[in-house]
Each structure stands twice: as C-alpha cells, then as structure tokens.
C-alpha cells in the first residue's frame, strides 16, 4: 500500500511558556488545533506554566478535557524562573524530533505553522525562524517610538554582529530537537536578548537557518513592555555577544 512506503511520520512538539495567559492560551489552543488538524501532522502542545496566579493552569486543564491530555501536556513549574530554563524544562518532556517555540500572547498566529514545516522540508534547515522584516511579513500595533527602537536595535545588531538573519529577536521558530537542546544550554541571556543569543550562537556554530515571513500583531489582551530597562538589557546583551561569540 501507499501508506507503507511513506517515511515514518514526524512528531512536532509545540513548546509554549506561559505566565498569566489564561485567556490567550485558550484562544491559542483553539487556533493551533484548528490549523494542525487540517494539516494532518502529528503534534503535541507542551505548556510550561510558571505558577501563574491568574488560573492559567485551570484553563489548561479544561482544554485538556476538550482536546485530550495526550495532546496538551501541562508541565508547570513552581515559580517564575525565566525563559531559557522554561525551554529546558519543556524539552525534557517533548517527544517530538522537531520543536516549535512560540509566544502564548497571540502575537504569533498558528496559521504560519504550515509554512514553517514546508520550509523545513524543502531546505532541510536546522532552524526555521519567523521574520517580520521580509516581504510578506509585518507588524501591527506598534507606535512610532516602538518602531524606532526596533529599527535602531536592528541596525546596531547587524553592524556589530553580522548575523545573516533579518529578524533577531523574533521568537516564533522551528528547531531540530538536538539543535535546540544544544543551543539552550549555551545561552545565558534573558528577555529579548535570549532569542537573539540563540540565533547568533546558531549561526556561529554553522547551523543552517531558513526564514519564513510572519505577521506579528502586538498583544490584544494584556500589556507588553519596552522601557529603559529593556533597552539597557538589550545593549548589554549585544556587547556580550560581540565579545563572546
């Protein structure tokens, strides 16, 4: 039969760290299952919740009843422990050979997942990263100050680091599991810088990185912040990468 000659099916693990995202995670799960059930791929959703006080975990348990607790895995942690370790924690429970990472706040839409998968199959890339700054991508919901900061940060990073990737701080990505495991161990930064550190270290290690355009709609529910402290953190991270990679 045709089915027997086809290669073994791949399992995609979708890793989502959350903190106070009770509404967004429910909406996101609906959109994930809607997209991926149409696509006919095997997948699991792994949610790492850092003890959200708003009842995020209760909502996730309700979602498990709808979609099945073999499809949605809740792997909580006892306290807010940071992004890098959330990925390490989630990876320990991931059965897939390919790992998606995305934000829970709906700024990353699951409808782009098929184009990540297709790109990876076409190019056999180690990492497929979503970019907002190539043709077909875009950002919605940023004011002039936010755009200016973003462009300034980007020009600075490209001048100093020569990274060959157009969108350094994007966090909608598809990794081969061993690649993500290796990278996450060598990254020390927090916040925005973490995603940049991951992709810069990946280019230095010679991994093949492909890009797909995505649109980014700034969060509808809740607040995203970018203040002086974040900018200082970014600059520190930039110089760290300049001297250590």
């Amino acid at each position: 039969m045709e089915k027997d000659s086809s290669p073994p099916r791949r399992l995609y693990s979708i890793l989502i760290p959350t903190y106070n995202e009770r509404l967004n995670i429910a909406l996101l799960c609906y959109l994930l299952f809607k997209t991926l059930n149409d696509l006919d791929v095997d997948f699991e959703v792994i949610i790492v919740d850092d003890a959200s006080p708003d009842g995020t975990q209760d909502v996730i348990k309700q979602l498990q009843q709808i979609y099945g607790d073999h499809k949605i895995l809740l792997r909580p942690r006892a306290a807010k422990l940071g992004l890098g370790t959330a990925y390490v924690h989630g990876l320990q429970h991931a059965a897939g050979d390919y790992i998606f990472i995305m934000d829970a706040d709906l700024s990353h839409h699951p409808k782009y997942i098929p184009s990540f998968i297709r790109k990876q199959l076409d190019t056999n890339a180690d990492i497929v990263t979503g970019t907002r700054y190539l043709k077909g991508g875009g950002v919605h919901g940023w004011d002039l100050r936010r755009k200016l900061t973003s462009r300034g940060a980007n020009v600075l990073a490209h001048t100093l680091l020569w990274p060959h990737v157009s969108d350094l701080t994007g966090s909608f990505r598809l990794y081969r599991k061993p690649v993500l495991e290796e990278l996450v161990k060598s990254c020390v930064s927090k916040g925005y810088v973490f995603q940049m550190e991951m992709i810069v270290r990946a280019t230095r290690k010679g991994y093949y990185i492909a890009e797909v355009p995505i649109s980014f709609v700034d969060r509808v529910y809740g607040t995203s912040k970018l203040g002086g402290a974040e900018i200082v953190q970014y600059l520190k991270g930039l110089f760290l990468l300049f001297f250590t990679t």
Partner: peptide, 12 residues
C-alpha cells in the same frame, strides 16, 4: 527602515 516599516493592519 522606518520609512519602509512593514505593517499589516488587515492581520489585526
């Protein structure tokens, strides 16, 4: 970069 900043109001 600011001049050609890609936006996507329809996505919202």
């Amino acid at each position: 970069g600011l001049m050609v900043f890609p936006t996507c109001p329809h996505e919202s």
